[in-house]
Amino acid sequence: MLQVLKKVSAEPLGLLGLVLVVLMVASAVLAYWIAPYDPIALNIIDRLQGPSFKHLLGTDQLGRDLFSRVLFGGQVALKVAFISISIALVIGVLLGMVAGFGPKWLDSLIMLFFDTIRSFPTVMFALATVALVGPSLMTVVAVIVVTSIPTYGRVVRTQTLSIKNNEFIKAEQVMGASTARILRVHVLPNVVGPLLILASMDIPTVIALEAGLSFLGMGVKPPTPSWGSILNDGYTLIRNTPWPIVAGSIPLLLVTLGFTFLGESLRDQLDPKLRNNR
């Protein structure tokens, strides 16, 4: 793993991605210690200020320090992204491999499940769920998990189908290997590569979805800071000050770039065949 990271950081875009991701993760994890202010502490006197040494990104309409809010908002964003994508990955990989490798009726059943989920528009599905069970971090995670499973599941299924008829799988069968072993030892390592890049490129999408829901007031409950709610505040204040909008969108931009570059670079490094051709 260390070697892969070394190789990733050897190319400029990989390094940029790695630096951005590490920066985002570190700032989110360490938000409690590095944030100069309490992200929810009101300070009406200093409201709607521009950037200064006192407030690096300015303050919002309630005088809360935007830099601190962005840091804590990153915590929420990354928590939602990592938890929901990890769960979706595990379930998606399992279902996808079973669908691709198993008997045809099981494949049809799982595909029917995937298609049913995908036939809901994601945002509508999210809004309906929130309306039903109320807004919370857990609801956002659950919505993202359910809507992402088919994406990963389908990729894994296709990969499994194409691997299934390879001679090395038949060789395992003739040697007497159980289906579970074949899936775990021989199929999984070969489908996980493309999936990792897909997942790392999905992180910004999920973060944007969380931000979007929070923007609509359907995600994280105020006063907990979220990039989406920062953006929402900025949107209503756009005629007074641009800074909340800037503060809310910069991290979104950086996260998207960071994970995309890192994902592409990882893909090149994780495939032993690609690795040698470069």
Binding site: N166, E167, F168, K170, A171, E172, V174, N190, K273
Partner: peptide, 13 residues
């Protein structure tokens, strides 16, 4: 069994 495709019958990773 020895397979027709010598490389393809070995798990690539």
């Amino acid at each position: 069994m020895m397979w027709q495709n010598p490389t393809g019958s070995l798990s690539p990773r």
